[in-house]
Amino acid sequence: MNAIAGVIFHFIGGFASGSFYVPYKKVKDWSWEAMWILGGLFSWIIVPPIAAYLTIPNFVEIIQNTDSSILGYTFLFGLLWGIGGLTYGLGVRYLGVSLGSSVILGLSMVFGSLMPAIYYFFNKADGKHGIDYFFTTNAGICVMVGLLVCIVGIYLCGKAGVLKERGLANLSGEVQLEYKFGLGITVAIISGILSACFNFGIESGKPMADVANQLWKAANPNDGEFLYQNNVTYIVILWGGFTTNFIWCLYLLAKNKTFSDYKKSSAPLGKNFLLCALAGTTWYLQFFFYGMGESRLGNGASSWILHMAFIILISNAWGIFLKEWKGVSKATYRSIIAGIAIIILSICIVGFAKTLE
């Protein structure tokens, strides 16, 4: 039952992450940096402490009593993840929701799931799997098969993007202006590698989640693991993410002289503000539900792979719904549909792996 609940929670989190950029696409007459930093205020500064307060009322004390080295590493990984999140927005902008998310999150999936296992192979810790787990146990081998199957699905999504570029001459000038494969794929690779740092941040901040978990279990004996234990860790990780994005967006606002976007008479200011707030809040919800899924499946490769796979799945579904693949050849369309189908298969395989433990 825990495995089923964990998969469902990861699906909800993946849906939130795969959908967050959709409101941004409806923002009118604002620069990218103007809308990104406003949405980020909700993602990283406003919503996380509200969620933590509602679920862990003493979260401030937990952070205050945490060793400075733990806070430092958690913040650092949040800082690096922030660069990944920053370039995520650019990758999606230049590649589209489908292809951009597939490449970025595919790389994040691989690095985020395997790097902690390599670390714990050399630094043993209770409850943590080393890289040998994926080659010496039935459950671990099944997880690796699921990861490899997902990579095949990501490859097919990427292939569809290349085919789309070749057929770009048949698309409108507006699409040609936004779709830049060379620049987009470079940004996407950087983003994918650094986005994996969020999982490293969760690992680094685990002592804070453990304290929250212990306090809850003491007050609620025999009720299992605390569903919201990671909400305190997110506070520190997202401080790091906000720092990176805030500095970069301030630079762009000054360089491009786009501070005036917030008072443009041609822009629907109220609507734009609400759309950015919705986008930012939706993005945070991915972490909220990831933490719930992780509390049921464990913070290992399975949780990270499921989370990433669901995001890729939903992102590609949105890409089709938003007609990003309209007008492409049948071969291109078959490639993106096959990629989505194979990613769904990988989700089933990784979910099944938990039943083998």
Rank of each mutant, 00 (worst) to 15 (best):
V7A: 15
V7Y: 00
H10M: 12
F15A: 13
S19G: 05
S19A: 04
V22R: 04
V22P: 00
V22C: 01
V27N: 07
W32N: 07
E33V: 05
A34R: 04
M35I: 02
L38I: 08
W44T: 08
V47G: 01
P48A: 07
Y53L: 13
E61L: 07
I63H: 09
I63S: 10
Q64Y: 09
G72D: 03
T74F: 03
T74K: 13
F75Q: 06
L86F: 15
G91S: 08
Y94T: 06
G96R: 02
V97L: 14
L99C: 01
G100P: 10
G100F: 03
L107D: 01
V110T: 12
M115P: 00
I118F: 15
F121D: 11
K128S: 12
D132P: 08
Y133P: 14
T136I: 15
N138D: 15
C142P: 00
V149C: 14
I151H: 13
V152T: 15
Y155W: 12
C157I: 14
G158P: 02
K164G: 01
L168F: 10
L171A: 14
S172R: 12
E174A: 15
Q176A: 14
E178L: 14
G182M: 12
G184N: 11
G184R: 09
I189S: 10
G192K: 06
S195M: 13
S195T: 11
A196E: 05
C197I: 01
F200W: 14
E203T: 08
K206T: 10
P207H: 09
M208N: 11
M208F: 11
N222W: 09
V232Q: 11
T233D: 06
I235A: 09
I237R: 08
T243M: 14
W248S: 08
L252T: 06
K255I: 06
Y262C: 11
Y262A: 11
K263W: 14
L275K: 06
C276R: 02
T282N: 07
W283K: 01
Y284V: 03
L285F: 15
L285C: 10
F289L: 05
S302V: 13
L306I: 02
I311A: 12
S315L: 03
N316A: 02
N316V: 01
G319V: 02
F321Y: 08
E324G: 05
G327V: 01
R334I: 01
R334W: 01
I337L: 13
A341D: 01
A341M: 10
L345V: 15
I349C: 03
F352Y: 14
